[in-house]
Design a protein around this nucleic acid. Structure first.
Length: 434
RNA sequence: GCGGAAGUACCCAAGUGGCCGAAGGGGCUCCCCUGCUAAGGGAGUAGACGUCUAAACCGCGUGCGAGGGUUCAAAUCCCUCCUUCCGCGCCA
C-alpha cells in the first residue's frame, strides 16, 4: 500500500510504476483514487464543521437548561436550539455514511495499487524475465540416476503418503524415522544458525483473527491460501510471517529498539488452490509444512542493507549443507504488489538438472507498515513508518528434496552434511532398508 | 466453560447526562531556592490520527478497552464483543 499523498503529488510516478509492472488495467485506479480522495475530504470537511457547530450549540443548550430553572422563558430558547441541532443531525448522518463509503472504497482502491518498486528491479512481464544474479557452488550431476524424492524417502522407510491421504487427504505426509529426524535436524540447525546471526528465536501463535489476516494479506491471497476454523474468528497461519508481523499492528516502536531481528518457527497451512504440476508431487507443495523464517523490522534507510544480508544468510546456510544454490532476482511483473524488491534462493536439483525455489526474500518497504500502522518514534519524537522484510530460513519438507538429491550416493545411501550430524545423534549416513 | 469484579492519559486514581479532554497523586521535563550523598517552591505534561497549510504553528474534528444504540448533548444510560483479575471446572 502506498501513501495517498504520493498519488496527490505525483500521480504520474504511480502510473509509471504500474506500467513497469505490466498492469495497465490498473491505470484507471489512480484517477479513481484521486476522485475518491477529493470526495472523501469534502465530506470530512463538511461533517467536521457540522460537528463543531453541534458541540457549540449543545454547550449553549446546557447553559440555557440551567438558567431555565430560574427563568422559564429560557426553556423556549433551548428548545429552538435543539431543533436546529437535530436538523443538522440529518445532514451529518448522510455525511458520515458518505465518509464511510468513500473511505472504504478508497482503501480498497489503494490496496490494489502496487508498491513503488526499487529502481534496481529488472523490468519484465512475468517470471520468464527473472534474472539469475549469481550461483553459489557447483551444480553437479552424478553419473547414476537420481530417483524422485519420494522414492528416496521410501527407500529409507521415511515417508507414508498413502496413510496421510487416508487420514487427511492429498497434500499431507507422514515423515518417519531418520527422515523425520532429519527434518527436525534441519529446523534445529537453521534455528541455531539464525540465533548465531543475532536473531531472536520466536514461537508465534499458529492461528490469528480475521482482522490480522486482512492486514497482512490481500483478499485474493486469503481465499487461495487460508484455512478458517469453523465457528471461530480464527485462521490457521499460512506462514509465521503472518502472526509475526501481525504482532506489530497499531504499534509505535521506539527507534532505539530497532532493528528487530527475529527468527520464527511455525507449521504453515495452505490451501494451495489451483493446478499443481507433475514436479510438485510428494512433499514439494503441501497443505501443511514447517518453516523457520526470518523477519526484520527496521528504519527505512536500513532496509536495503538488511535485504542483502538476509538473502546472503540463506545462501550461507544452504552452502553449509553442501547444496548448490543460485540467487534469482524477481522482475517487476512477477513481483507481488506489496513488495519493493524480492529474490528467490533456488537450490540445485541434480535430478531435474535445474534450480528450484527454496527461499524467498522480500523487502516490503513501508507497504505492510502503512496497512498495519506500524510506526517508529524517532529520538526526536517524529513518526515514520517502519520497513518490514522477511525471508525463508528453511522450509524442511521442500529443502529435504534438495538435501537428499544432492547428498545421495551411488549405493543409495544419503550422506548427512556435517553441521546436521550433532542433531542426528552423530549419524553420518542414512542407509536404505534391506 | 461457569460465577464474580474491573478496564479512564506514562503509572495509580476521582468521576452516574451539559460547568469534563477529563480532579488528585506519582513519575517525567523545565525554572527558582537551598547547597551536597537530601529537601522545598513554581510551571508544563494526552500520545495518536484526520482535516486545514507549500510546510510548520494555530484552529477544527475524532478520542475515557472496541463496536453499535439512545439523546440537542455520553467517560457517565442501553446492547454486543474483547481483555485482565479472583474463585470453580477442564486440560498438556
Amino acid at each position: 500500500m502506498i501513501d495517498i499523498k504520493l498519488i496527490r503529488e505525483n500521480p504520474e510516478l504511480v502510473r509509471e510504476n504500474i506500467r513497469k509492472k505490466f498492469q495497465e488495467a490498473k491505470l484507471p485506479l489512480v484517477d479513481r483514487a484521486l476522485e475518491l480522495d477529493r470526495l472523501n475530504r469534502a465530506a470530512i470537511n463538511e461533517a467536521s464543521e457540522l460537528r463543531a457547530r453541534r458541540n457549540q450549540l449543545s454547550k449553549q443548550i446546557g447553559a440555557l437548561m440551567g438558567q431555565a430553572k430560574k427563568d422559564p422563558a429560557k426553556a423556549g430558547e433551548a428548545e429552538a436550539l435543539k431543533a436546529q441541532v437535530k436538523a443538522d443531525g440529518e445532514r451529518l448522518a448522510q455525511l458520515e455514511e458518505l465518509e464511510g463509503k468513500y473511505d472504504g472504497e478508497l482503501r480498497a482502491v489503494m490496496m490494489r495499487i502496487p508498491q513503488i518498486i526499487d529502481p534496481s528491479v529488472p523490468i519484465g512481464p512475468d517470471d520468464s524475465c527473472n534474472v539469475e544474479v549469481q550461483r553459489f557452488g557447483e551444480p553437479k550431476v552424478p553419473d547414476f540416476p537420481i530417483p524422485y524424492h519420494t522414492q528416496i524417502m521410501e527407500s529409507l522407510n521415511g515417508i507414508d503418503l498413502d496413510g496421510a491421504r487416508r487420514v487427511a487427504g492429498n497434500g499431507f505426509y507422514y515423515l518417519m524415522g531418520d527422515v523425520a529426524r532429519l527434518h527436525e535436524a534441519v529446523l534445529a540447525y537453521a534455528r541455531d544458525f539464525m540465533i548465531g546471526k543475532g536473531f531472536t528465536y520466536v514461537i508465534p501463535p499458529f492461528m490469528m483473527h480475521g482482522a490480522i489476516v486482512e492486514g497482512v494479506m490481500s483478499q485474493s491471497d486469503m481465499d487461495a491460501m487460508m484455512y478458517k476454523i469453523e465457528g471461530e474468528d480464527l485462521y490457521l497461519i499460512g506462514t509465521s510471517e503472518h502472526s509475526m508481523i501481525g504482532r506489530y499492528i497499531d504499534q509505535i516502536i521506539p527507534e532505539a529498539s530497532l532493528p528487530h531481528t527475529l527468527t520464527s518457527y511455525s507449521p504453515c497451512f495452505r490451501k494451495e488452490k489451483g493446478a499443481h504440476g507433475l514436479e510438485e508431487r510428494g512433499v514439494y507443495r503441501i497443505h501443511q509444512f514447517e518453516k523457520q523464517e526470518m523477519i526484520v523490522m527496521c528504519k527505512p534507510e536500513d532496509s536495503m542493507t538488511w535485504y542483502e544480508r538476509m538473502w546472503n544468510y540463506s545462501v550461507e546456510l544452504f552452502r553449509s549443507m553442501d547444496i548448490p544454490v543460485r540467487q534469482l532476482e524477481c522482475c517487476s511483473g512477477d513481483l507481488a504488489d506489496l513488495k519493493v524488491k524480492s529474490c528467490d534462493i533456488e537450490a540445485w536439483s541434480p535430478r531435474q538438472e535445474k534450480y528450484f525455489e527454496v527461499c524467498s526474500c522480500s523487502n516490503l518497504g513501508d507497504a505492510q507498515a502503512r496497512r498495519l500502522k506500524i510506526r517508529i518514534r524517532g529520538e526526536d519524537g517524529k513518526m515514520t513508518l517502519a520497513h518490514t522484510l522477511n525471508n525463508t530460513v528453511v522450509a524442511p519438507p521442500r529443502m529435504l528434496i534438495a538435501l537428499l538429491e544432492n547428498n545421495l550416493c551411488a549405493d543409495g545411501s544419503v550422506r548427512i552434511p556435517e553441521p546436521l550430524r550433532p542433531y542426528m545423534g552423530g549419524k553420518e549416513r542414512l542407509v536404505p532398508a534391506k
